[in-house]
Simulated assay, not measured.
Amino acid sequence: MHPAFSVIFLTTLIGAGQGLFLALFTVESYGLLELVPSQGPEFYAHGSLLALALLVLGLFASFFHLGRPERAWRTATKWRTSWLSREVIVLPAFMAVVFLYGLAHWTGFNPSLGTLPGGYNVLATVLLGALGALLAFALFLSTAMIYAAVKFLQEWHSPLTVVNYTLLGGASGFTLAAAYAAWAQTDLVSFLAGWAIILTLLALVSRAASLIRNARIKPISSLQTAIGVKHPRIEQKSQGFMGGSFNTREFFHHRSAGFVRAVKWAFLIGVFAIPAALLALAMLMTVDATPVLVAAFAVQYLGLLAERWFFFAQANHPQNLYYQSVA
């Protein structure tokens, strides 16, 4: 498939925003249980603002993928059958909850809504955080299923697509949260960096599994089934006209096999190896680790751009069996 950079930026930016929000809610939950140091409301308010900025940028990027942006609202009308419609509904809902979560912390409006066994108060921000976490996972599912539900693209049609989107978004979000915690001069750097390493390694296992699976895929279709001719030896010389078409532009990446392999190794190093090493280094540092953690997130995000490009490029549309050459 032809990778669209608008969708690449959409999925990577909102994934990082989702992961960052989940990191913030994790810190608040652990703080209420006295497992990590409690943080002031400014930490959650500013962190929510950063997460919301990533979500807005991702939403903005998505409009460049639309032929008629003014009709974008119509995509929400098919929510019963379309994962894209569900994503269009869940994303704004998640953004609204992130905004309310940050606003509640910023204004200090955080009343207790009840008490759990053990004397733990159910604060308004905890309820908003739980709702936001639920919407974050629903958004991961909706975004990934847009591709995993396409049965004829065998590279995408796998539960690993959903797992990869979730773990990669979580890993980038927690890496950014660690950098943010270091910048805010909190005692959460080791906690968040440790979780970022765990999520990064889990994402490596999941992504490696998908690479191995996709390398072993046997195409369901063949050139014979594509054109309806049963002869054992068929060689295409022309597609019937001299110029390109929508089919030849949008369903193939037009890059060499060597280039695609280079992108694969680039994202394996950029998403997993370098960030994990930098995160581990930050946990051992006795001085300000902010520059190291910012570099870890920057490298990981650039790696995610390459990973998402490879994800789209690796999908081999069956129509390419027929449109093998322009002339």
Score class of each variant (00 low, 15 high):
R255C: 07
L321M: 00
Q319N: 13
A203K: 06
H254K: 13
A177W: 02
V260G: 06
A327W: 13
L59S: 14
A208F: 04
R249M: 09
L293H: 03
A130V: 09
V292D: 00
V150N: 12
L55Y: 00
V326L: 14
G258T: 02
A138T: 07
Q185I: 00
R207V: 07
A133R: 02
W156K: 09
V97P: 06
A184M: 14
L192A: 05
L204C: 06
E155R: 08
V263F: 09
F241M: 10
L84G: 04
I234Y: 12
A276V: 11
T161P: 12
N164G: 06
H2W: 14
T186C: 13
N247C: 09
K230I: 03
A277T: 03
T161E: 05
L52V: 06
A289P: 09
A45G: 06
V36P: 08
L278M: 10
A193Y: 05
V271K: 09
S158K: 03
A277C: 06
A273Q: 01
V299D: 06
M285Y: 03
G170S: 10
V287D: 13
E42R: 15
F21G: 05
A136C: 07
I89K: 06
G40C: 07
P219E: 00
A203I: 03
Y147Q: 02
I234L: 15
P3E: 00
P69H: 08
R255H: 10
L128H: 02
N121D: 12
L135F: 09
L128N: 01
L52N: 03
G170D: 02
N214C: 11
L50M: 08
W73G: 15
T143L: 13
M285D: 01
I89M: 10
N214I: 06
S238G: 11
L127T: 02
G244W: 02
A178L: 08
I198Y: 09
S85K: 09
I234H: 13
L134N: 01
L168K: 04
G228H: 12
L103F: 14
A196G: 08
T81A: 15
F5T: 04
L199C: 08
E70R: 13
E28C: 06
V189R: 05
Y165D: 00
L59Y: 11
L321D: 00
L192S: 01
A257H: 06
A203T: 03
H157S: 10
I212W: 15
V292N: 02
H317A: 11
Y301E: 01
L123I: 01
Q18G: 12
L168S: 13
E34P: 11
L134Y: 09
V263K: 05
H65G: 09
Y30M: 12
G303D: 01
A215Y: 11
V299S: 12
L32F: 13
L91Y: 08
A184C: 09
L131A: 15
V122Q: 07
L33E: 00
L202G: 04
N247A: 15
V56G: 09
A306K: 04
V263C: 10
W79F: 15
E235W: 07
F63A: 01
L135G: 04
L321S: 00
S38R: 15
F310K: 05
G173S: 02
K218A: 14
A178M: 07
Y120E: 05
G102T: 06
H46P: 00
L54H: 07
P159N: 02
V229R: 12
L123Y: 11
R207A: 09
N316Y: 14
F140R: 01
R71D: 10
L52F: 15
G270V: 03
